[in-house]
Amino acid sequence: MAERMMSDRITAPTIDAVERCVRFAAAQAREAGFSLARVREIELVVEEVVANICRYSYGDRSGSVELSCERLDDASLTLEFIDYGRPFDILALPAPDLAVDLDQRDLGGVGVPMFRALVDHATYRREDLRNILRVIVHAAPRLRSDPTAR
């Protein structure tokens, strides 16, 4: 609830950053009139980005994640993720080896292709010891969904 009152920006400590950033972005997307299907996709994007920031940028040390949300027009939102950890560019991570044999399949790495599939545009820059990831999401869902889903 508190983050809604902070209008379009939230700063969350890493301990509960994933949950709080997801809630915040979902509220923003709903407010912008996005469909439930697209809100869920945006929740996935935010979860994957923030979980990766906590794991790789902060290396499981404590820190904070800032997320701001700006409505560009009726059909798109910009999400900007800022953290103060070590340089970490989710866009530069190599594509994981999604081997089709269960025994050879690595447990991690799925979050990144998921992120790429769900966003419309993304840029990264390192500035003043901060990682800044800017993501644009359009209102149209990227995945096929069930319109009657709840």
């Binding site: 996709e41 996935l44 089709v100 292709p113």
Partner: peptide, 18 residues
Amino acid sequence: LQPTIKEIFKIGRFDMVL
């Protein structure tokens, strides 16, 4: 699986291993 979850499985190629 709901359609969206099915799509997520495809992205991660989980439909090929599970």
